[in-house]
Nucleic acid binder design. Sequence first.
DNA 1: CTGTTAGCGCCTTCAG
DNA 2: CTGAAGGCGCTAACAG
Lengths: 347, 347
Amino acid sequence: MKDKSITIRDVAAAAGVSTATVSRSLDPDGAEGVSEKTRLKVVEAAASMGYQANPVARTLKTRSARTVAIVAPELTNDFFMDLAEGIEKELSARGYTLLVASSDNSVEEEKKRVAMLADRMVDGIVVIPAEDRGDHLTAWDKKGIPVVLVDRLIEGAGLDAILSDNEAGARALTRRLLEDGYRHIAFAGGDMTISTARERIAGFTAAMEEAGFHPPRDSLYLGGMRVDDGFRHMDTILQSNTPPEALVAVNLLVHLGMERRLLVRPSGRPGEGYMPAIAAFDESNYSSFLPACRYTAAQDAAAIGKKAVQCILERIGQKRRSGNAGEVTEPRTFRLPVMIMNHFQKS
Amino acid sequence: MKDKSITIRDVAAAAGVSTATVSRSLDPDGAEGVSEKTRLKVVEAAASMGYQANPVARTLKTRSARTVAIVAPELTNDFFMDLAEGIEKELSARGYTLLVASSDNSVEEEKKRVAMLADRMVDGIVVIPAEDRGDHLTAWDKKGIPVVLVDRLIEGAGLDAILSDNEAGARALTRRLLEDGYRHIAFAGGDMTISTARERIAGFTAAMEEAGFHPPRDSLYLGGMRVDDGFRHMDTILQSNTPPEALVAVNLLVHLGMERRLLVRPSGRPGEGYMPAIAAFDESNYSSFLPACRYTAAQDAAAIGKKAVQCILERIGQKRRSGNAGEVTEPRTFRLPVMIMNHFQKS
DNA sequence: CTGTTAGCGCCTTCAG
DNA sequence: CTGAAGGCGCTAACAG
């Protein structure tokens, strides 16, 4: 029992034309060099037979799988999820598919995954970098596979990047706290090696200084981007004699960690009644339920994904036209605005 | 400037053998019919040249892309996220890739996406069905592309399915509430058309009846699986004269909706002091922060994903051996246990 | 505008 | 055990 897959030849026979004409008539990027009459004839014949061009054969020939891949440090992450949805929507509207891979927070894995994807002739790769190293990514980009960075920037890599406006977001969060009358405000989480954190810290510092405050060293609880780190920082804060009145959290996870630490503190210990106001990056479905949460900066991950796809498709177009050689546009960095959300009601 | 991709021919030349021998030596499913000596020679040559077999060409020939796809009603969903991570991990360990598509909660879209994926010669498809209709899925499965259902069962579709043990989970949740002394317990959310909901409702009812209670009609707040629905149900409950002391929520979203409704109720209105105990399906990072949440039934989505992949690979193996014809194993349904979690501490 | 032809890179009988 | 040869289904020059 054979797979009776109908090929371009069958259609050609049925329409009384050559396979080349069928191919041209059915070009997904718009038929060219075919008279409208024959094109219609072919399209009709194809439809009536239920012909579907074999994408794999097409890929082998054109070296394009009409596929975009995304590589992220981990898949279980709200930002990634929204991003993937945005990307998928944008891609499927254009007949592209989405390949997903996890780098498992390791540059080595990232390197392997990206290489594997490149071998599969994906047309472009969206990367949330695992670390601040991008040589391997730049290499692929130069080889003709557009790579777009998302969420984190790798400076000097010469790659397109779509990011939230982290500095403005952090500044806005900080200002809100200042407007609420808080003076002793600290920043929690984030490594200076990560562009996202660096920019958010800069925004915080800028807002404080604009307001005439020069945040001392000890009002930066730096280090880490994960739940544990937030937990740890809040632990330290609870043992402080002069804990900050308010905090800016570098991201969702650190925020969550801090809230967790507040939630589980036993009564009758120092810091029992302490409840800071927290302004944090990343809105979630649950932000309103977090007792300390006052403001969040919501990133538009779906829009970032959409923009990333547009970026990639643009690059592909350039490459096609310039024959993979001509000088293409300079790498660009896009900053998408974040939205500040209020979270007042607490039970 | 050409893509100097090295091909099997280059390796053959370098190793002083034919391309056929190279192909055999580098078969990803284990080399056969090659002497160990020549195999080593080939492998070494390939490695030294940095040869990577072109997966697309291989796919065209073997009709297998070494890829598994997942189709879900939506990507922004905790369960999906964990599932995808589980699947990806299991796949990448075996050199497979993961393709992701959204059916956008529509069977029509689901049909299109699945067809597209099948055309790309994916080796199997994991589907979270958008609705209770599976004819198109069964068709592909019979055509030789294994389809595995996840999360929701479509009865009579004759497809493998990996599910949580919904009935046992609901029963356990209900029992916990009963053990805590609650008597007037209701169930919230879920349509009888969805297997997942049906099973959970059955578990609830069974536990209640085992305890000697026969839940009346009005203690089933049925309908919907989303945040809005939970919100709506709690709205109704708040206006009731005899609101239930405790609730079992059909899933995360309905649970969240109910908590939201409780969170935003204004003071000085009926139901102001009302605070039910909620036992809900699905654990999240934030469950501890939900004021009414007492118990959750945590599904092991990663394990479900892993099992789904194993299922698919098994089917692929069967098909290979039986030449796509021989009678394969009966479709099987696997039930993975859920874990009941306590959530006591509230601020 | 259309047809002919030559592969894309690999796998897989079929001989040897 | 190994090699030679013929496609998988499609597209892109090149002719006509």
